[in-house]
Design a protein around this nucleic acid. Sequence first.
DNA 1: TTTATATGTGTAACCGGTTCCACATTGAGG
DNA 2: CCTCAATGTGGAACCGGTTACACATATAAA
Lengths: 330, 330
Amino acid sequence: MATIRDVAKHAGVSVATVSRVLNETGYVHEDTRRKVETAISELHYTPNEVARSLYKRKSRLIGLLLPDITNPFFPELARGVEDEMQENDLRIIFGNSDENIKKEKEYIQTFVQNNVVGVIASTNHPDTDTYRKLNIPVVFLDRTADNRPSVYADGREGGRIAAHEMIARGSRQITVMQGPKHIRPAQDRYQGAVDVLSDQGITYNIIVTSSFSFTEAGTWAKELFEQHPDTDGVIASNDIVATAVLHEALRLGKKVPEDVQIIGFDDIPLSSLLTPSLTTIRQPAYDMGRAAAGLLIQLIDNKNIEHNTIQMPVTFTERETTRKVEQQHG
Amino acid sequence: MATIRDVAKHAGVSVATVSRVLNETGYVHEDTRRKVETAISELHYTPNEVARSLYKRKSRLIGLLLPDITNPFFPELARGVEDEMQENDLRIIFGNSDENIKKEKEYIQTFVQNNVVGVIASTNHPDTDTYRKLNIPVVFLDRTADNRPSVYADGREGGRIAAHEMIARGSRQITVMQGPKHIRPAQDRYQGAVDVLSDQGITYNIIVTSSFSFTEAGTWAKELFEQHPDTDGVIASNDIVATAVLHEALRLGKKVPEDVQIIGFDDIPLSSLLTPSLTTIRQPAYDMGRAAAGLLIQLIDNKNIEHNTIQMPVTFTERETTRKVEQQHG
DNA sequence: TTTATATGTGTAACCGGTTCCACATTGAGG
DNA sequence: CCTCAATGTGGAACCGGTTACACATATAAA
């Protein structure tokens, strides 16, 4: 690999001049610029980011930490982040945390060691020193911590909507699936749904789903209908679980939505391709990723931020696992 | 951030000694080691990877280039890569290429600029200078190029199996969906299926699906049944498309698998949760990711590699979108 | 006692960029 | 003609690690 000194020698100038050409800083005579540019292209020179990063104490990398890219909600988020970053000449160091504090810490550490200019993290522990002591901007994604920069959807409201719609559509024996205890957004949804259900005096059962994995989703679906066979409405903790519930309901010969209605959460891409297609509370994952990236970039550029917590809207996405209602609702 | 000089000063030794302690190289007196370690923990020192990378001319980063993390096949791959890398203290710079040569080139360039020690790429153009001229190891994943390190599944064989099984189960008006022309594995599958169909003298139709996106998948499914309403067997280009076809078939009131059988490709996690669950040609995506990462690490460590192209098995995964056969088949 | 070897430590060069500063040179304005 | 600002360029320090090399001391072997 050619270095800046090779280019300088080849062009008959000093490294400082080459650097000026590269960065378009300071004064460079037009003729000199051309000589340097010729040398650069002849030697196929590309500047070493590592050297630049060392001196500047900042790279063009950001760290992205997600729980598990294998959960279909996160690729959308990641893609949003990536697209925004890519457009801003920023690259991503990526890691899966598995909601595991140790792994999380290790990743954050290596992010810092690599001089990343910022971090986007989907963590359950935004309030630990791991993040507090970072002296680079952090944006929490799909999570919040009071007054820290974050982009998230209103899970509580989503849960409320789900319960309302479920009731409006006639279900009275509702089972709410409570997502993993340590995952905030999952608890928010759950809480929102339960709030409304209690308010309205509707009886409901609870099934705890302690992960969002595909393999286990089926187990909880089975558990649901074994323990609460008279369920006529399921508010699932996310679309994966909802899909498993739908699958199990159909396997048991139940008609959906006639016998049992199902509402999921997230609106992952496959939800609309199910049969019946899944009614769900949509989170705009891709846009959330983009928004988080945009916010992070602003923070990096030291822009004055008015709103550093961005709450994205959740929307009731009516499909075929719920019945129709005549009257308007909201 | 504390530097190695801060630590040296604090411990009353030279930076060389601190470096020796950090890297466990050369001789260090036990007492000295302790002093240094105390200083390190008191100052919360962590070495700067960028400085190390600059001198060593190699980082602890690898580049991972995938077409689109949003396609459910790739998160599995990515996760396999990540897990293996994580266990070997390597981190990942990640990018989506969108099968776009320019984007691909840009990413590879920034990988190099960041001193990555290796690259894993899922590219349609492994034979370009972009990869030939790299002087770091590259492993092609889900793609091959003759004699270059690669991990892939036998798409052709997968296509053959799909056709065989489809015929064995009685479909005679088969539609083969041909994936994007520029994606090698998609063409291999297609070719494998067509080979068998021609051999056996079975009539078949073709529907070209020029992408793997969720939104467009529905369009092709519609097109399929409009243009070839008598189709009684569909060999889809992947599971996303297969899911869309299943959805459309059911919407049209067709019985699956009685009226029309469907075989997908990939076995993405959601396939087993569909109703009916999707029969598919499985690629072991996670394992492929791990294998690619393992191979890359061997190459980085300059191990003598016997087999640098790893072909993973594809397996017929029988579920509910195909009928049962009595007799044994192969 | 002498010599060779193992052990222990520090100085400084080096990796490949960026930038401060010094030092021309040129041209405009007085 | 003189002064000053604008333009143009190079030398060298610097970023924070790693390591070659020099040097000192301790220990074992002869």
